[in-house]
Design a protein around this nucleic acid. Structure first.
Lengths: 170, 170
DNA sequence: CTAGATGCAAATTATTTGCGTCTGA
DNA sequence: TCAGACGCAAATAATTTGCATCTAG
């Protein structure tokens, strides 16, 4: 419902230096305007997979001098530059994540809508092998698992709708 | 690629009985109107992954008494009923495929935009194992490979844009 | 006969863009 | 200085929906 702030809880997969993305932008020779710096910061601080609307909200909270059009433009630019990766976890809106923390995959908890990241060398190799078997050179690939917590109690079908709409309550 | 049925012909991945989908609809107790029958037939005959607009075009060619709104509604209904699977191969539009020919994955040729289907038991098992390792019961998963024909000549960047737009020249 | 299906056009949603103004390098 | 970035509002594009009218069962 409201994923604005990151909970001060444990698990945080990562939450490094708030200037990572800005640095990457500069490396690629991008003109750093106030709003780009702002959006870069929001992205650097994100530990989830926010959509544009959410990025806009977070940016606004820090500095009101941004428009959602700029967020769209920036996110698109950064994707072209390879700094961001766009995902479609269902729900119509594109969701973004910085590419600077390694290749990994996603497991979506169909009950809570949470997105869990994981890496798997074996899969990496298998994808490569399959592509070769089919006569192709692998350029990219994506793997998404949809699962339900094992052992745990009954599934809340109420939350199912959140997943449909693509929220990421993480 | 497809070992299920024994079609008399060679190449075509499959192009079975033009009433498969209609039969499935009836099985699930759907009211069979003229347009549903029509759309079901188009779907039964499709050997690719058409988007709504394309389905609409094919249906129109057979019988002009359909509206695109109905195609949208039908495709959505059949997806809910598990008869169709919706894919997002990039390009903004959703693309559909009947689910009645087994679980398989897709390799998208980034140059031609062609979608190649393949199955892989090893990967199937791996996905299962990964989910378990993370403490989940696997509900579903998807794997998409993006590749470029090996050995073959230089890539046509002109066709690249087709892929971006999600076409399936297959 | 009637619940549900359809067509049409208007409404939504997500995203892009034209254009005059502002600003970082 | 000035190419490129921004804000705003209007434009697209894909998909959904309200409503009056048909139609399968």
């Amino acid at each position: 419902m409201d994923t604005r702030t990151a909970p001060p809880r444990t698990a945080a997969p990562e939450a490094p230096d708030p200037m990572r993305i800005e640095r990457l932008c500069i490396e690629r020779g991008l003109k750093m305007t106030g709003q780009r710096r702002l959006i870069a910061r929001v992205l650097s601080e994100a530990v989830d997979h926010p959509d544009v609307e959410e990025l806009y909200r977070r940016a606004l909270a820090l500095d009101a001098r941004v428009s959602i059009a700029t967020v769209y433009r920036t996110v698109r630019l950064l994707e072209e530059k390879g700094i961001l990766e766009r995902h479609d976890f269902g729900g119509g809106r594109a969701r973004y994540e910085a590419t600077d923390h390694g290749h990994h995959y996603h497991l979506i908890d169909v009950d809570s809508g949470k997105v869990i990241e994981f890496a798997d060398a074996q899969h990496e190799a298998l994808a490569e092998a399959i592509a070769e078997r089919l006569g192709f050179k692998l350029i990219g690939h994506r793997l998404e698992l949809f699962g339900r917590r094992a052992e745990t109690g009954p599934a809340s079908s109420a939350r199912r709708s959140k997943v449909r709409r693509g929220e990421d309550p993480a």
